[in-house]
Nucleic acid binder design. Structure first.
Lengths: 113, 113
DNA sequence: CCTTTTTATCGTATATTTGCGATATACAAC
DNA sequence: GTTGTATATCGCAAATATACGATAAAAAGG
């Protein structure tokens, strides 16, 4: 039981779901905002900007990294994070495309919900 | 510990994160596709269209309902689901707006990630 | 009323996420 | 080398998500 069946679905849907998951916590959205505003910043600045412990921020950054939405650059003992703009744009385009296709197929035989 | 801190963040970010969470599983994306194609259909049709047990599909539908992305209409013993298009459009617009603002703030002082 | 059909919910098992403190690691400065 | 700073990772606890089978509930048909 509790087998993860995600991989049996359409790879494109899997990719979009990874993007969705990255956006599924407001802390990660807040991180993206700070990174955009400042054009990237070090982990410590993010910790100061968020109401979360350093280890928790680091974990959210890891998730954003795994979804390819941010990049990290080591500067001595510091980690400078910035937004991976090409990847973000690609993901947003994928999302838009998904919903565009959804609307194009929009069948008028909707139930009377 | 393990206290959920989501509610301390920007309400707009919270709303977007709820949308993200709804999209965070490919099964739910597949459900949305089927609903769009057919203009809504009953739970049983979705179960046939997906490689998941009936109870699991029902659970995913519940999540989509809780994110307001689908509506349900009871037709005798059947439940007819359809996409809540106004809510979907609102959520997609919110998502677009988020990334538009992100790009507008795009500070050129990016780290050399 | 009983049966069938359909769907939601319950119970359960497991996996993942969220959050923190503590610790390890990596580098800079001295 | 030692100290200090910055960050990642570990370990833990609690919450949430994923998946299924079993059961309950609701309506239609006999």
């Amino acid at each position: 039981m509790a087998v993860n069946k995600k991989q049996v679905f359409d790879p494109q849907d899997q990719a979009l779901s990874i993007f969705g998951k990255a956006l599924a916590h407001p802390a990660r959205l807040a991180i993206l905002k700070v990174l955009a505003e400042r054009g990237g910043c070090i982990c410590g600045e993010l910790v100061d900007a968020l109401p979360l412990a350093q280890s928790t921020v680091s974990q959210h950054l890891k998730e954003l990294r795994e979804a390819s939405l941010v990049l990290v650059n080591l500067e001595g003992p510091r980690s400078c994070y910035c937004i991976n703009w090409p990847a973000v744009e690609k993901a947003v385009d994928g999302m838009k495309e998904f919903f565009k296709q959804l609307e194009e197929q929009k069948n008028p035989n909707a139930c009377k919900g």
